[in-house]
Design a protein around this nucleic acid. Sequence first.
DNA 1: ATTAAATGTCAAGTATATTTTACACAAAAT
DNA 2: ATTTTGTGTAAAATATACTTGACATTTAAT
Lengths: 69, 69
Amino acid sequence: MGRNLKVKAARAALDMTQKDLAEAVGVSRQTINAIEKGDYNPTIKLCTAICRVLDKTLNELFWEDDENV
Amino acid sequence: MGRNLKVKAARAALDMTQKDLAEAVGVSRQTINAIEKGDYNPTIKLCTAICRVLDKTLNELFWEDDENV
DNA sequence: ATTAAATGTCAAGTATATTTTACACAAAAT
DNA sequence: ATTTTGTGTAAAATATACTTGACATTTAAT
């Protein structure tokens, strides 16, 4: 898994810090950092919460057309 | 969380059993059953794997426009 | 040059996703 | 009638998402 630049970009577009996003979705700042860093696997509930805050959809932030295969 | 009828329908459209889908994505049948039953919260990796097998996207199977708010 | 804010990372703990084994029930097949 | 296949569900164990607290580094501000 590579870094999730889409989340980072969407967050930046709203001028939110990792801490801001973390508080908005109710997780720790480290969790947001880990998601953007990309080396892990959040739950769909958290992904959906992030999407709602950042005004994006799951496909926009968490779908990759070319994952492998 | 309500039941996920979208996964159930997409699976039925391909004439796959819960067991078939479970094996295709590499989890237990109970996990698929629990997802369709809806009372829980899979990881995005598993959701993505299910989407790939069922030839759907995250938005199609796991996004709900009207969750709450 | 210093301070503060934002980010990256780590280790130990807690919460929960997922497995395994097992059993009950419904529907379809024989 | 009875066997088989698909589904719903539960309890105990394991894997892993997520937290907490802490520290280092970067970036922007003063």
